[in-house]
Amino acid sequence: MSSARTVVIIAALTLREASRRRVLLALAVLTVALLGLSGWGFSRLAAESSEFSTLTSGEARLAASQLLNLVMFGFSLMAALGTAFLAGPTLSGETESGIALAVLARPVRRSAVLLGKWLGLVVFGSGFIVLAGLAQCVVVWATVDYWPPQPAVALALLAAQTTVLLTLAVLLSTAVSPMASGVVAVGLFGATWVAGVVGGAGASLDNEGLERVGTVSRVLLPTDGLWRGAMHAFQDPSPITASFAAAEAFPFLSMAPLTAGYLAWAALWVAMIWGLAVASFLRKDL
C-alpha cells in the first residue's frame, strides 16, 4: 500500500465527511444568504444613495472596495471557522472515539493519514473560499460595476489564509481535544486580526510600538498578513484608495501588496507547523 494512495483515500474520505456531515450544506446556505444580503446592499447603495451617485468615480470605487473587503472578511471568517471546527472532530475526535484505531491498524503510515486529512481540508476550505469569493466579485460587478484588479491573486491569498489556519488547527487537534483545538485556532485567528488593526493604527499614528504589534503578530501567525494581501488585490488601485488607507488605518483597506519574502515565510510556516503536527501525531499513543 503506497503512502500516496493512502493520502488520496483519506483526503477523499475527509471531503466525503464534510459533505455527509452537512458542513457543506450549512456553508452553502450561509454563503447564499451573505451573497444575497450583500447583493441587495450594493444595489441599494447604487440606486438610492444620492451620495454614491454624486461621488467621483474614484470615491465610488473606494467605497466599493471597502464594502467588498468587508464582505470578503465575512467569507474568510466562515472558511476559517468551518475548517478549524472540521479539523478538530476529524482528527482528535476520531482518536477520542476510537474510529482512528481501526484505520491506523491498517498498513498505512500515520504521516500519510495526516497528510490526507490535511489535504482534504485544504481542498474543502480553499474550494469554498474561492467559489464564494468569486461569486461575491460577480455580485459586486453586477450591482455597482466594480471588478477587483487582481481577483485571482486575492482568492489565492484567501485560500492560503484558510490553509494557514487549518494547518494550525490540525497541529492543535493532534494534541488537545476537538473542541479546544477549534476554539484556540479561531481565537488566535481573531487575535491576529485585531493585532493587525492595532498595527495599522500604529502606522497611521507613527507609533512604532503599536506598529510592531501588527508586524510581530503577522509573523507569528500569517493569517492576517495574507488577508491584508488579499484585500490589497481586491481593492481599487487608485492613489485615492492608497492615501485613504494610509491616513485612516481603515481595517478593510490595505496599504501595500504582499512581498515575496512574506509569502515564502507563510509557506515555510505552514511546512513547519505541518511538521510539528506529524511529529506530535507519530508519537501519540492511541
Binding site: 500500500m1 494512495r5 483515500i9 466525503r16 465527511e17 455527509r20 472515539s97 476510537g98 484505531l101 498498513p107
Partner: peptide, 27 residues
C-alpha cells in the same frame, strides 16, 4: 484484521462503505 475493544466506525458512512474503505486502505 483487528477488532478494537473500542469499536467505532465512521457514523456518516454505510456499513458497506466502511468495509470498502478498509479494503482500499489495505490495498
Amino acid at each position: 484484521g483487528y477488532l478494537p475493544e473500542l469499536f467505532r466506525y465512521q457514523p456518516w458512512l454505510s456499513a458497506a462503505e466502511v468495509l470498502a474503505l478498509h479494503v482500499r486502505l489495505t490495498g
